[in-house]
Structures are given as structure tokens and as C-alpha cells.
Simulated scan of single mutants.
Amino acid sequence: MIHNPKAYRAVPVGVVLRRVPGVTRWRKWSWSASAVLPGAAPAQWRELRREGDAVEYHADTVQLELHGAEAEAYQHGLGSKVPSVYVVMRESGGEHPLEIVLVTASPYEAQDYTDSGEEIVEKVPMPAQLRGLIEDFVAEFYQEEAFVKRKRDKKRVDLVQDGVGDPRIGKAADIYASPAQLRRRVH
């Protein structure tokens, strides 16, 4: 892993959310992240497409940040069957039902957000343009660390019994004696 301060890139990414009718009477609408738009201009819930009751919105544009310390995670994500980015959202009580927290290419960071249970994390297929940018970043900054097996020293630590037992116990034979036997001996 590297810690190069120059190993940083950021690209604006628009998040497209899709709204479809809910499947239960308790939830009127069902929301999901359906796409990301690399290099998108700022937008606030602009309607992109409508097909019957299904509507897609360009909900927000956030910065996708790439850090050199996370290059291994990006490499892992690129190696998956369908390379993806992860959209982290939070339910909001405001005018719009969801707030976009971040977009990440790191499956490890996305996993961290799922652990809290407060955020909604959705996997979205990575567009080719974004994939090329991340592959270039990984090629430039990822360096696989060589595995170094730990070697044991030759010192025998089992030969000396240093600090064995409780100082209140008189002799080694008393170590396994029950407390009742010890009280009888004292009195």
C-alpha cells in the first residue's frame, strides 16, 4: 500500500435514481440507484425520463474521490464479474426522499457503510469512461506488497517458569488444591 499525497483524483459523478410504484400499500414508491453519469454537471432532482409510472431523476452530482491508499480496493472491484461503483444514500425527511451521501469505487468502503444499517448502499454498473479512469489510476498508483513470512526466533521460552502462580500459594503442590483444603492447613 502506498501513501503518496499526489495519489488523488476526483471526478464529478451524477447519480440517477429511479422511482417506481411500491409493491405494498404501506410504501407508495420504491427508489433505486439505476446509473451514474461521469463528468455530470450539478443537478438537483432533474427529471430525465418518464415511462408510465416509472421516473428517473438526476438526483445529485457528487465527487467520486480516488485515493492511493485505496488502490488495492479499486483493483479488487475492477476484478469482479461486473465492475461497479457504490452509491451511498440516506433517507431524508426533506423535500426529496433520499440524500446522496457519496459514490465510491471501493467495495471495502461500501461494506463499511452497510455495517451501520443507517445508509442505503446500492451497486451500480461502472460506465466504460469511469472504468478507464479507475484502471489508469490503479495502474499508476497500486503496488502489490510482497508477502513476508514471519520467522520465529530460536530462543526457548518454555524452559524457565518465571512468575508462575499466585504469590499467596506456599508451594507448587498447593496449586491444584481446593480452597477448602488450603483453609484446613492454615488453621
Rank of each mutant, 00 (worst) to 15 (best):
M1H: 12
N4L: 14
P5G: 03
P5S: 08
K6I: 07
K6T: 12
A7D: 07
A7F: 04
A7V: 06
R9W: 11
A10F: 10
P12K: 15
P12V: 10
V15S: 11
V15M: 13
L17R: 03
K28D: 05
S30D: 13
A35M: 10
L37A: 00
P38Y: 07
P38D: 08
G39V: 03
A41P: 06
P42V: 01
A43W: 14
L48G: 01
E51Y: 04
D53M: 10
A54S: 15
H58G: 02
A59Y: 15
T61L: 14
V62H: 11
V62W: 14
Q63L: 15
A69V: 11
Q75R: 15
H76Q: 10
G77D: 04
P83K: 05
M89N: 05
G94T: 06
L98P: 00
V101L: 09
L102R: 12
A105C: 04
A105H: 03
A105N: 01
S106R: 08
P107H: 10
P107I: 02
Y108Q: 08
T114V: 10
T114G: 02
E118A: 01
E122S: 04
E122W: 07
A128E: 14
Q129R: 13
G132P: 00
G132I: 00
L133E: 14
F137Y: 13
F137K: 13
V138P: 12
V138E: 10
F141E: 05
Q143L: 11
E145W: 09
F147K: 07
V148N: 04
K149E: 15
K149M: 07
R150E: 12
R150Y: 07
D158S: 14
D158V: 02
V160N: 02
V160K: 08
D162G: 01
D162Y: 12
G165H: 13
D166I: 03
P167E: 09
G170F: 04
L182M: 08
L182I: 06
R185N: 02
V186M: 10
H187D: 09
H187T: 06
